[in-house]
Amino acid sequence: MTRPLVITDCDEVLMHMVVPFARWVDEAHGVLFRMEDASFAGALKRKECGTPLEAAEVWPLLDGFFRTEMERQYPIRGAMAAMAAIGAAADIVVLTNVGPDHQAARAAQLAALGLAAPVIGSRGGKGEPVRRLLDERRPSVAVFIDDLAGHHHSVALEAPDVWRLHMVGEPAIAGKIAPAPYAHARIDDWAEAADWILARLDENIPAPRPQLV
């Protein structure tokens, strides 16, 4: 039997992203970020006229941020201490939707903070990469952590035995995001979240399978 596995997102789980991103797009692109609901793209508006950016304009801004501005990011409170505690009991893999182009930079970013974990720069739903990790590693129990409800649904479909924790570690947006229906718990504070994760690892049993729609 192999070690337990914790698969975690990065942005708004381990590292602040929207706050430094908002400062950068304001300074460099004349774009305001005002998140009024769960829509990231809809929060981006031109400073001069207030019109929302087109969907096709959003990814180039995100790509530019990850390409040149990742040093603006800083850890979510308690995240690195929690990873150290969890790493004593489980393997950790960071599964982040920055894409393959920014995978190495993300790994270096986290390693500089003391988290020397494998990083997978994915795109799209996270269910399939989680399933592949389970097939490769055969963990005794697995926990998935992410801030986006869609990824919890994707993992519930592809890897229903995985425990799923919904975390939005950025206080500026946490209150605007409803709990993910396909997560087993919603916890936005790392002290409480680490206890929940360690309890799941200690129990060492598969997650209850969801009612999928």
Rank of each mutant, 00 (worst) to 15 (best):
M1D: 13
T2K: 07
R3S: 11
P4W: 04
M15G: 03
H16G: 04
F21S: 00
A28Q: 13
G30H: 12
F33M: 14
R34T: 15
E36T: 15
D37Q: 07
S39K: 09
F40N: 01
A41Q: 07
A41L: 06
L44T: 00
K45N: 09
C49T: 15
C49G: 14
T51A: 13
E54F: 08
A55M: 13
A56H: 13
E57P: 03
V58S: 01
W59N: 14
L61W: 01
L61G: 00
L62C: 10
F65S: 00
F65H: 01
F66H: 02
R67H: 11
R67C: 09
M70I: 11
E71H: 11
I76K: 00
R77P: 06
A84F: 09
A88R: 12
A89I: 12
A89W: 09
A90N: 05
V93C: 04
V93L: 04
L95K: 01
T96E: 00
G99N: 02
A104G: 08
A107H: 09
A112W: 07
A116L: 11
A116K: 14
A116Q: 14
V119L: 03
I120K: 02
I120P: 01
G121R: 02
S122A: 11
R123T: 14
R131M: 10
L133E: 03
R137D: 08
V141Y: 03
V143G: 05
D147L: 03
D147R: 02
A149I: 02
A149V: 03
H153V: 09
A156D: 04
L157G: 13
P160H: 05
W163T: 09
R164G: 05
R164K: 15
L165H: 05
A174R: 08
G175C: 11
I177R: 01
A185R: 15
A185M: 14
A185W: 11
R186N: 12
I187H: 00
D189E: 15
A191Y: 07
E192A: 15
E192T: 14
A194V: 15
W196F: 14
N204D: 15
N204Y: 12
I205C: 11
P206W: 08
A207W: 10
R209G: 13
V213W: 06
